[in-house]
């Protein structure tokens, strides 16, 4: 009973931690992996999702509906941003970096002006239950399930739909994709919009667990970037999943044994080591393994 509840608790901590890494990073990963744009407005797009969900909840909308609403609102905002601003900076990574940074400043300051320094949070939906000595939050269990569902959905989108095929082709060789008939401009708008929408969705999901303030997005930026860099760009979804799981697997046991601070230290250290051993990220390593298997006819 005791070891059983300890194992369950460890798995739970691992799951919540991996879900947090994945949710914080997913929008950033889509935009970086598919468009090679480092989106420094990522944290503010999450903030926008959190605000959308919080305001809608305070207005009486059920929380479960505010999450897809946040996705739609931030996705639409992302599409407009791409059309008006971001598309002028394709192929100039530094330019895109600066312009998205500028967007993040405007969004943060604009929110401060408009909504003030903070907003009453919404309470975490669902309750918690205990098993042995440990307690489990129902909401975080739902977040783990949503992360798994999102992974499956994104895998399907990028591997089984025309948009996904065109987006991956355009990422690898935009000129060739265009020369084969792909409307690459439209693909980029969709991709940026999707990445923004996912950031908004994550922001809404994390909102009940966070303090709602104009600069709340900043706290997600570091874990998001670490997840992305460790994951690598060869296959962004596999990379994000592998990286979120691995980082959580390092952080959780250390955190449980020595406290949250040492958990974070271990996380950063693990990220450094992984980047040293696999400079192209986890996904490149997975890909080489896949190539060997497919060449030898095992797959």
């Amino acid at each position: 009973m005791e070891t059983q509840s300890l194992v369950l608790s460890l798995l739970y901590q691992l799951g919540t931690s991996a879900a947090f890494f994945f949710l914080a990073a997913v929008g950033l990963i889509i935009i970086l992996g598919m468009m090679n744009i480092i989106n420094l407005a990522h944290g503010e797009l999450m903030m926008m999702g959190a605000y959308t969900a919080t305001i809608a909840t305070h207005a009486g909308v059920p929380f479960a509906l505010t999450v897809p609403l946040a996705f739609l609102v931030v996705a639409a905002f992302g599409a407009v941003l791409e059309r008006l601003i971001v598309r002028r900076f394709y192929g100039r990574q530094l330019g895109a970096l600066v312009v998205t940074w500028g967007i993040s400043l405007v969004m943060g300051q604009g929110t401060l002006l408009f909504f003030g320094p903070f907003m009453p949070s919404i309470k975490i939906p669902g309750g918690s239950f205990s098993y042995g000595d440990f307690s489990f939050s129902e909401y975080w269990l739902v977040l783990i399930a949503i992360s798994v569902a999102l992974i499956a959905l994104l895998w399907w989108l990028y591997n089984r739909t025309t948009y996904g095929l065109q987006a991956r082709a355009a990422m690898q060789d935009a000129t060739m994709a265009k020369s084969l008939g792909v409307r690459t401009g439209r693909v980029y708008t969709l991709t940026f919009s999707l990445g923004a929408g996912l950031a908004g969705l994550s922001g809404a999901l994390i909102a009940p667990t966070a303090t709602i303030a104009p600069f709340m997005g900043q706290q997600f930026v570091a874990p998001a970037f670490i997840t992305v860099v460790v994951g690598g760009a060869a296959n962004v979804i596999a990379g994000a999943v592998g990286s979120a799981t691995l980082l959580a697997a390092v952080k959780t046991p250390v955190g449980m044994a020595f406290g949250a601070f040492y958990g974070t230290v271990a996380l950063l250290f693990a990220a450094l080591v992984i980047i040293r051993i696999m400079p192209d990220g986890i996904s490149a390593r997975l890909q080489r393994w896949f190539d060997r298997r497919s060449r030898s006819g095992l797959l």
Binding site: L165, R168, A169, Q172, D173, A177, N235
Partner: peptide, 8 residues
Amino acid sequence: GRGIFPHL
């Protein structure tokens, strides 16, 4: 150079 998408 053929323009094959290497990762597709």
